[in-house]
């Protein structure tokens, strides 16, 4: 659901800390008709211009908190990502992205489901890696977005 609209079009920007570009960011929504407990949010498949940015370089900013890693989010079992709210996906990539247009391949993984599933125990032990399609029932395809880097940088 909403696959073509999960990333806000003007949200691709470089992230800056103390004058250094440390990575980039995208503003994203939840691919569902409802919010979810934050613990279920399992990260992203993300490839920009053919370069892959796996979950261990991703952090997620939501609910007015500093960006958190997906291992931290996994423990937020009572905090909710409400349906109306946009989150910010930060990616550690020293130097950030070059100015201009970028090709972004993107898939969100959220372990929300209709009741018990045959995969439940497996996903407790080994959560699916985003991009495999597993854990992405509401957004089953990797979607290609063409996005222009907004020139102004954001301070993290």
């Amino acid at each position: 659901m909403f696959e073509n609209f999960l990333i806000r079009e003007d949200s691709l920007r470089n992230d800056e800390v103390d004058g250094d570009v440390v990575g980039f960011r995208l503003a994203v929504r939840n691919a569902n008709y409802r919010g979810v407990f934050l613990s279920l949010h399992n990260g992203y498949f993300l490839e920009v211009d053919g370069v892959s940015y796996p979950r261990d370089v991703q952090t997620f900013e939501i609910n007015g908190r500093e960006p958190r890693t997906f291992s931290e989010l996994r423990g937020q079992v009572w905090e909710h990502w409400d349906y109306d709210d946009e989150g910010v996906l930060h990616v550690a990539a020293p130097g950030g992205l070059a100015p201009g247009v970028h090709t972004v391949r993107f898939q969100q993984s959220v372990l929300a489901a209709y009741g018990y599933q045959p995969t439940d125990e497996e996903w407790v032990a080994n959560p699916p890696v985003p991009g495999t399609g597993a854990g992405s029932e509401k957004a089953p395809e990797i979607v290609v977005h063409t996005l222009e880097l907004t020139a102004e940088k954001e301070t993290v």
């Binding site: 409802r34 407990f37 079992v77 929300a112 009741g115 018990y116």
Partner: peptide
């Protein structure tokens, strides 16, 4: 209402 059985992530 919904039911997400992996909410706690360390067990079903």
């Amino acid at each position: 209402v919904c039911m997400d059985v992996l909410q706690f992530r360390d067990h079903v």
